[in-house]
Nucleic acid binder design. Structure first.
Lengths: 163, 163
DNA sequence: TTACAACAATTGCACTGGCAACTGTACGAG
DNA sequence: CTCGTACAGTTGCCAGTGCAATTGTTGTAA
C-alpha cells in the first residue's frame, strides 16, 4: 500500500472511530439524562476540568465550536436550570457561566454513565499503554495542525472530585 | 494521572484532532469545488475505493450516516450532475449510484486538493511509522466497539488511478 | 472629549442531518 | 394465489450548528 493511501485509510478509520465512540457516549448519556453530548461537555468543562466559572468564549475555544453555537447550548442549559449566566461589573462585555446546584447534581449522575461508557469504549481492546500511545499521537496531530493548547486538555490536571 | 482521567483526556484529544483535520480537509476541498466533505467522500467511495456503481445503502453503511442523510447527499450530487441514479430491472427496490463523466472529472480535480491537505495534516508531525501505529489503534478501537468491517476501509485495496 | 477599532456575545437565516412515518418492491408461509 | 413481513429508499418535520450581521462594551488615538 502506498504512503498516500495508507494516510487515506488512517484518516477514514480515525473518522469512523470518532463517530462510533461519539455515538456510544451520546446514547449512554441520553439514557440517564436529557443532555446531549455537547451539553454534557460544557458542564464537564465547568466542574471537572476547570472547576470555576468560565467565559463563553473560553468554553467555546476549548470545545472548538463557534461562538453562536456556544450561545445556543448555554441557552438550553440555562433554560433547564443547570447553569447561570452573569456579567461581572468590571468587564461588562463578557458573560461568566457557572454551574447551579442542580447542574452539579445532574453532572455528577451523568458523569458516572459517561465514565462507564468511556471505559467500555476504550477499555475493550485497548491496553493502558495503547491509550497513552494514542494520546501521544493525537497530541502530535494537533500540534502539527497548529491546534494544540494546554487549556484544551486535561494535561497534568487530575479531575476534581464531584461532591 | 488516573487511568480514568487519562482516558477522558485521550477521548477529548481524539475528538479535537478529528475536528481539526476535518475542518482543514473541508476548507481545502471547498477552495477548489462546491463539494462538502460528505459529498466528496461519496464520490471518493464510488471511484477510488470501490470503482463500481454502489447501492445507496452500501455507501451509507460505509460512511455511517443514516439512509435519509444519504438520500439528501445523493439529491445534491445528482442535481449538480455528478452522479446518476438507476434502479436495475432485476431488483427494483435498490438504487445504484454511478459517477457521471462530470463527476469523475470533478472528483479527480478535488482529489488532488484532498490528498495535499491530508498529507499536510498527517505528514506534518507524524512519521510513517506513527501513521501505521495510529491506524492499528483505530482498528482496535473499532473492533472493540463492534464496528469493524473490511468493507468500510481501504485495507489491502490500493486506490484505482483516476483517469 | 470624540471617533474609531477591537472584542464578547447574541440573533437572523439557511443548511445539514437524523428520526419516524410512508411508498413501493421482493419474498416466504400458509 | 394472497397475505404478511422484511427490505430499500424517500419524505415530512425538527433539532443542532455555522456564518454573517448586529448590539453593546472597552480601549485607544487624535
Amino acid at each position: 500500500m502506498t504512503k498516500s493511501s495508507e494516510r487515506v485509510a488512517t484518516w477514514m478509520n480515525l473518522q469512523q472511530a470518532n463517530r462510533v465512540v461519539e455515538s456510544a457516549l451520546e446514547q449512554r448519556i441520553r439514557s440517564v439524562s436529557d443532555l446531549s453530548l455537547a451539553e454534557f461537555e460544557v458542564l464537564f468543562r465547568l466542574k471537572i476540568v476547570s472547576n470555576r466559572p468560565l467565559q463563553m468564549s473560553e468554553i467555546a475555544s476549548q470545545l472548538i465550536n463557534s461562538p453562536s453555537g456556544m450561545t445556543r447550548i448555554a441557552d438550553r442549559l440555562e433554560r433547564d436550570g443547570l447553569i447561570e449566566r452573569e456579567t461581572p461589573p468590571e468587564n461588562r462585555r463578557v458573560v461568566l457561566v457557572r454551574l447551579t446546584a442542580k447542574g452539579t447534581r445532574v453532572l455528577a449522575e451523568t458523569n458516572r454513565a459517561f465514565q462507564e461508557a468511556l471505559n467500555q469504549s476504550f477499555g475493550a481492546h485497548l491496553s493502558e499503554r495503547d491509550v497513552a500511545e494514542l494520546r501521544r499521537l493525537m497530541h502530535s496531530l494537533l500540534e502539527g495542525n497548529g491546534a494544540w493548547s494546554d487549556a484544551r486538555c486535561l494535561l497534568g490536571a487530575p479531575p476534581a472530585a464531584i461532591d
